[in-house]
């Protein structure tokens, strides 16, 4: 269980990263925290020709709070975000969901953008990004663009990123006054891939519910508020629309039921916790 050979570039600035991506495209992979990539390398599921280590690029290392969103650079580790003292105040969903990502020993290395790039359908960060309507900032030698999270995730571990693009940062909207947020997750064990993960935002009597672990990507939908009797019907329709599937750990039926039950519970909790 050892990786196949590859070259390694420890980039010291952004241009160097974009250069390698420009020249080698799909044969290059970004190495940030490595917590998703290294297992794939070890199992030889992935065989890139070159890895570009971006952790020493100063311009990618910061978290900026512009008052409406946290802009998190590609080299920011999950643990670093988790350790921000004002995190729960700035965005409760992040504070609630980060501890669910793997384990402390992997969050210490894993990056926020790396998890977004990996686009695992049951990963927490992509779900939050979609539920909160965040943005992915992409840069290549050709262009710079910002993609809405909802459009970024295109399927099972598939994203809108072009082969020569680097995810430079993601922007996660911070809490808005009067809005409530809640996160819930069910996995077989703590730290496992979510069977169903729910992220809810309640604002002005309306809800938005994001679901991870069910469809081939995280999906968020606007919903009636918790007091609206149309909510159950909407949850039921959502549960069906996600096309849940059976796997080793849960049945499609179970997932649908959790979307309904846990989805409701999460929305209710968000309504209770309104800031």
């Amino acid at each position: 269980m050892k990786p196949a050979p590859f070259d390694y570039v420890r980039a010291s600035d952004g241009a160097e990263v974009l250069d390698v991506l420009h020249r080698q495209g799909a044969d290059a992979r970004i190495l940030a925290g490595g917590q998703s990539l290294l297992p794939m390398l070890n199992m030889r599921l992935a065989r890139p020709a070159v890895l570009v280590d971006i952790m020493h690029v100063p311009s990618l290392q910061s978290i900026a709070d512009d008052g409406t969103a946290l802009r998190i650079g590609a080299a920011v580790r999950q643990a670093e975000l988790e350790a921000r003292p004002d995190l729960a105040r700035r965005q409760k969903l992040l504070a609630a969901a980060l501890p669910w990502i793997g384990h402390a020993q992997t969050r210490s290395r894993g990056t926020v953008c790396g998890s977004v790039a990996h686009a695992d359908p049951s990963a927490e960060l992509p779900l939050l990004l979609v539920a909160l309507g965040g943005t992915v900032h992409l840069r290549s030698r050709r262009r710079h663009r910002a993609v809405e999270a909802g459009a970024f995730f295109t399927g099972m571990m598939a994203t809108d990123r072009a082969d020569d693009e680097l995810i430079e940062a993601v922007s996660i909207p911070t809490a808005r006054p009067g809005a409530g947020y809640a996160f819930r997750e069910i996995g077989r064990r703590h730290g496992d891939f979510a069977i169903v993960a729910c992220a809810a935002v309640v604002e002005n009597g309306r809800a938005r519910l994001g679901i991870g672990g069910v469809a081939d990507r995280p999906v968020a939908q606007d919903m009636p508020g918790p007091d609206d009797e149309a909510l159950d019907e909407a949850l039921d329709a959502f549960a069906w629309a996600l096309e849940a599937r059976d796997d080793l750990h849960a049945t499609a039926r179970y997932r649908r039921e959790l979307v309904r039950r846990l989805g409701r519970a999460t929305i209710e909790e968000a309504a209770r916790c309104r800031a």
Binding site: G34, Q35, P39, N42, D53, M55, A79, Q105, T106, R109
Partner: peptide, 16 residues
Amino acid sequence: QIDGVPARACLTLAVQ
């Protein structure tokens, strides 16, 4: 521990 924080040596390259 890498720079003071626990991390998996199996998910880290020596060159990193």
